[in-house]
Each structure stands twice: as C-alpha cells, then as structure tokens.
Amino acid sequence: MKEFVLYTGCTTPVRLPAYEAAVTVVLEKLGVRLIPMKDVNCCGAQYIESLSHTAFAAMSGRILAIAESMDRDILAICGACSGSLKAVKHDLDSNKVLRAEVNELLADEGLKYTGTVEVKHLLQIFNEDIGYDAIKAAIVKPYHGVRLAAHYGCHVTRPPEIVHVDDPENPVIIDTIIEAAGATPVDYVGKTRCCGGPMLAMDEEVANKIGLDKIKNIRDEKADGIVTACVFCDIQLTQVQFGDMAGDEPKIPVLTLPQFLGPAMGINFDSLGIQLNKIDPQAILQEM
C-alpha cells in the first residue's frame, strides 16, 4: 500500500473536517494510506507570502523538512497549501542562498531540507498513483443521470510549470472521475476561473460577486451539483449561495471530490461526513 503524509492545512480541520475524513477513507479503499503530520505550522499562503518571500519559504520549508524526516511524499488537499509547498520546493531546489537561510532556521529543531520529498495535490494521487482503471473497478454503486460541474481551483492547476497538475486551460481529471463513477460531467462558461475566495479579505462584495457569477454559469447548464478539489473553493462556492446577493433560486449542492466518489464506492455517508454538508446533496446521492 502506498503511503503519504497528509498536510491538511489550517482550514480543512476546522471548517471542513468532512473533507479530511472523506479523503482518508476513500484513498484507503483505493490503496493509499495517509499518515497525519504532527507539530506542523501554516504554509504561509497569501498572508505571510505577501510580506516576506523568505519567511514564506521558511514556513513551507519546515513542512517539507518534516515530511523528509517522516520519509514520505506529501499529499496536500487544499489548493493554497499545495501551491505554496510546490512553489517553495521549487525555490529551495533552485536557490542555494534561500535554502541555506531556511536550513539555518530549521537546524535548531534538527530538521533539514534536502529536497527529497515530492508534493502532490489530491488530483495527482487519483491520476498518477491510483489511476482511472482502479477507480472504475472500485465503483459498486454508479451514479445515473446526474449532471455535475467540476471546479478545479486556481492554485491546484496554476502555474502549470510548477504544480504539474492537469492542463490549466482544459483540466480533465475531476471530469474523468465524474464520468468513471457513472455521472455526467458538464462544461460551463468560466470553468477555470477563480471562486473568488482569495478576495474575501480585501473586498467581500467583489469576492461574492465572483463566486455567484460561477454559480450562475453552472446553473445555466442545469447541473445538479458541483465537485471541488480545494477546501477554500468548496467553502466559498457554498457560502455565496447563502448570502444577501444570492437570490432565491434553489441552491446547488457542493461536494468535495472524495465525498462524491465515496458513495459510489459503497462507503457509508456517515464516514464521508455527508450529514455536515451545508447544502443537502441527497438529490445527487439518491441517483445511484
């Protein structure tokens, strides 16, 4: 069985623990075991990253060094975290001065970054480590007649030369998995656009307009639900549907990718945390 250390990031354990639970149980069933990381820190995305590139490199660098000490590659399930860890790995591998500075800080704890671990986002685990044939073989209760819109997440697929996940202009991994589970993937206007989440800090109204624009484009295609691969996107695309600007159209359920896949693999709803979803996805899940 393949093993990865799981870096949850700050948001998932608190705001979307069902994602953490669903990832763990779905991957285990597909032959990938996750080992929790202890005593880690925030990767520094967006905030520390904006103020000091060196401090950002030290924070993500420490996470990479802890994974090295555990002798396992990292799975990151948040778009921001996977993007940060990959960008910092790229920097530390190509900039000796930066690496020396980070290692000086890590030395107090007996940690050292040498560059031996890889960072993977969840989509890569499905695509590269498990494969679509194995996913298809694990489907015992396929979906029928459900139309689903994939939302990939900006930092999951961009910048492509650093993150190496899918084609950033025409990503297919989530869509392929939707199809493998018997449902119908639907395209929509602005599929690779942002959910608006990173704008919440500076301007909530603009952030929500961006999120609702995506919801409208998805609704126009008469999708029954949205499948996500990043905790921020999942929360943002859910919460915008409850805001003042949302209108009174029926809400579109949002599912993380493992929450979508799990039921088709015969995993019970409770261990996937389906009951915690803010928008009830029963309309999707009963079509099996």
Partner: peptide, 18 residues
Amino acid sequence: DLGLDPKLSWNNDFVKKI
C-alpha cells in the same frame, strides 16, 4: 464523530522565530 483526531497539534514555536 468523523473518527478524526480532535486534538490539533499546531506548532507555534517556529512562527515566533519567524
């Protein structure tokens, strides 16, 4: 309820150094 560890063990020593 989800079978996850309720104790989150975040490190705050390193950020103080940062």
